[in-house]
Design a binder for these strands. Structure first.
Lengths: 156, 156
DNA sequence: CTTCATGCAAAAAGTTTGCATCCTC
DNA sequence: GAGGATGCAAACTTTTTGCATGAAG
């Protein structure tokens, strides 16, 4: 799913507003990272995002990619996920409801879903344990049934 | 919650049976890692487990710790979790229902909970997306209300 | 012009690997 | 005995850090 030009403008404006109110500078590198993240709806790792920026000719270092991703997470324009391995994945977070992930352990395909019962679970847990819950991360693992799914043999 | 001696025996037997049926060797190092993991109910990272083994005088290398943890996960005696950071946490998995985790982002406390609605969510997702679901990982993040919780200022 | 942000490369943190030695079977 | 398992250390991967240079305000 792609965002409209108007939405992308809103995203950029929100980022710039955040930078302004925090007294941070508007640099072309920061904007480039934002654009690269919002160019596709997938879940990229930092290095892939870095490679993408290089490919586009943007002059951005890895350090700046990580740096900027942190800023984007702080202002809720990006989300970080840790899907099982030590490599974090990032996705855009604007105009997205809180959603969860379904991952095929064979082909690595990542699907998104949303179930209202999770909200209820959060509330229940918050009440029982006296927590002020801020967010959750649910990842469901399994085997997809796509014909094109490689490593199918692993499935039961 | 601690396991009884009988349960610990069952665990060891199960591990040894697994080694036997896979044609793997029963080494004192492997048993030491199992014991160290089952000595406490907490969620340890590999290095902490390694340090614990050293302290007990066990002669086990980091490589063997990782190696053995993989074996324990394969035979369902251990579970690996990736709580947000790039450092994996391990916990014993024998005689435990599938449970989920509630983490205080201020003090790092990890609580466990279980909600039957998750089972339903898994089933729903499996049906909608045509997945054969094998497991899930839900982590809820928030602020605990303990007096002793450090970094309380961060809470809203 | 001041100061913060960047790029680079080195360091850090976590995990995996290669190889000689040791120990289970 | 034979070959898998271990320990050690080095390699590797991902992320963070320090510092001189560069550019935003």
């Amino acid at each position: 799913m792609s965002l409209t030009t108007t939405q992308l403008d809103e995203v950029r404006d929100r980022f710039l507003a955040y930078l302004r109110e925090r007294g941070l500078r508007r640099t072309p590198e920061r904007v480039a990272v934002l654009n690269a993240l919002y160019a596709t709806p997938d879940h990229v790792d930092a290095d892939t995002l870095y490679a993408r920026l290089q490919q586009e000719g943007a002059q951005v270092s890895r350090a700046t990619v990580y740096n900027t991703l942190d800023l984007l997470i702080e202002c809720d324009l990006a989300a970080r996920h840790q899907f099982g391995r030590q490599q974090a994945r990032f996705e855009r977070a604007y105009a997205y409801w809180q959603h969860d992930h379904l991952i095929c352990v064979d082909c690595g395909e990542i699907l998104e879903f949303c179930d209202p019962r999770l909200q209820q679970i959060q509330e229940t847990v918050a009440e029982i344990y006296g927590f002020e819950v801020s967010r959750h991360a649910l990842t469901v693992y399994g085997h997809c049934r796509r014909e094109a799914c490689p490593n199918k043999a692993e499935a039961a």
